[in-house]
Amino acid sequence: MAKIETTYRDALRLALTEAMQADDNVIIMGEEVGRYGGAYGVTKGLIDEFGEDRVIDTPISEAAIVGAAVGAGMAGLRPVAELMYVDFIGMTMDQLANQAAKIRYMFGGQIGVPMVLRTQGGTGRSAGAQHSQSLEAYVMHTPGLRLAMPSTVDDAYHLLRQALKQPDPVVFIEHKGLYTMKGTLDTDAEPAGWGKARVMREGADIVIVSYSRQLHHALAAAEILARENGIQAAVIDLRTLNPLDFDTIRPLVEQAGRAMVVSEGAMTSGVAAELAARITEECFDFLEDPVVRVAGEDIPISVSPLLEKHSVPTPEFISDAVRMMLK
């Protein structure tokens, strides 16, 4: 296959297709994943290729979808459960946090739960308060769960293939604003390792750590800063939040002496808060400024497109924040 021009959505579908071709134990289950092809079209056509026993349309029963995936994973299948919106994670939280996340540990290591929970989150479609959230912190706060959040077409494919090889439950959160993004995918290339962050842009003045769609806002901000202010910002894509690759972050922050974390989730007790604390603890002697969080406002998301847009970081806001730091 080698290099192809494709979209985030199609790259995800390719990863699922190849995984299903390679292993009969891989199944997909969720609301509208079969005949409908997925609410965002990721699983379109898979039911035709793999049949109803492996691409399973479920009733609207999120708790049971995740719980059944837990059991299927324990019993030898490789389930990919789909949660249509990450906002519905609350309904699955017992199965996810008390079952999937704890089974290996509380049963003394006898068995793991190899499952992937694919879902999507974020703003951008005026989908309102219950369909626009960024809830990755719920997952990151639960020991036992892995968490991957692809920001590129390449990672949509490679991270999903890697997630399907993990021995433990992986929550895989896509961004609804990225599905139509185009990019180059090299399926033969050696992917960045599972759990490894990627330096997307070099820069000596400040390090911006981000992931998912905000990675693109951070990169756009870095462009603005280079063009308008001659500020060179390094930008890191975390790719996975658990495992968290601090080894890639540390040397860059030590060199630049300034760090900012950009995230779409609400700021308080969010992923950015964890990263900022970690950077402060580990790089304290090198820091010239407080580590700054540029994150979602501590408010629900409005259906009004205007309020929605300003509820999460924009490239302009990120670049303003960097200027404030460096003034």
Partner: peptide, 25 residues
């Protein structure tokens, strides 16, 4: 006030405790 939208309309005056975008919510 534009915060709820189609799926989250409500009006306590008419006893409407709220529309929901979570199935069964």
């Amino acid at each position: 006030h534009g915060k709820g939208g189609s799926m989250h309309i409500a009006d306590m005056g008419l006893g409407h405790l709220g529309a929901n975008a979570i199935v069964g919510g």
